[in-house]
Amino acid sequence: MNALLTSAVAGLTAGGTYALLGVCAVFTYRLVAVVNFTGAAIGAAGTFVLIALYEAGFPIWPSVLAGIAAGTLTGVAVGYIMTRSFGEASASTKAAVTVALLVGLIAIGLRLTGGQHPHNMPELFPGSAFRLAGVEVTIASVLTIGLAVLFTILSDLFLNRTKVGLNLRALADRPMAAELLGVRVQLLSLLVWGMTGAFTTFALMIIAPQRSPNFMTLSLLVVPALAAALVGVFRSFWWTLAGGIALGVVEGLASSIDSVSQYRSAIPFLVVLSVLLWSQREARWDEAR
């Protein structure tokens, strides 16, 4: 029993990261109408700037800041492509473009970072925060979940209490009508891409030491992130947050059960499949009637 609890708690760090990446995906979708497959790859780009600087002997915290800046700029660059060239495209076209950009980013990232070559990723927040039912809860777990909760609260406050947030909600509803009213559509879109790039990068910096820190592995964290976003139906920040944390905990539990541990990487796909089937149930009933 204690082993299960330990595994579940161990999954909290991953869960917090999935939640934060998922909330960022919902933020991007709600405000610039893009299902963004590049989210984690953008974070991976920033994380590898940190790794490169750290391996070159630079002090850790300036390297973290440089990494976050790089992640922000990568986000803005991807956003620039999306808003300039695909601003009026359909949601499915935009999603397909981000898949293509993901492949491109992974190819470039692997090339620049030496493929599967192992890297020395520093642990930013080592150690235990507290004990829960006899199980150590790491600072990284608390931080990723805290960051996800913070981003969720800030997103709600930002969108509902500020003029920029109001303009972003208008932009998400009718981009052209917003632009005709003088709303600086491109600037706001790039702000969204930059903000999510920064948060994603920081989340990946925390989780990277626990994963195999290569560009591909980190970039593919977009799969559990989008699974979490699907739990929130790409609308609810709080359901996405809960979905991400639950996904991490379930993965953690699965890793402690021998018969299923080798399939735990399939769990996000099962969640995606389940949510999609569940969302189609009404259509099926309608057809049956």
Partner: peptide, 8 residues
């Protein structure tokens, strides 16, 4: 087509 921001 009365392009109000529907959710606002």
């Amino acid at each position: 087509g009365r392009t109000v921001f529907r959710q606002l």
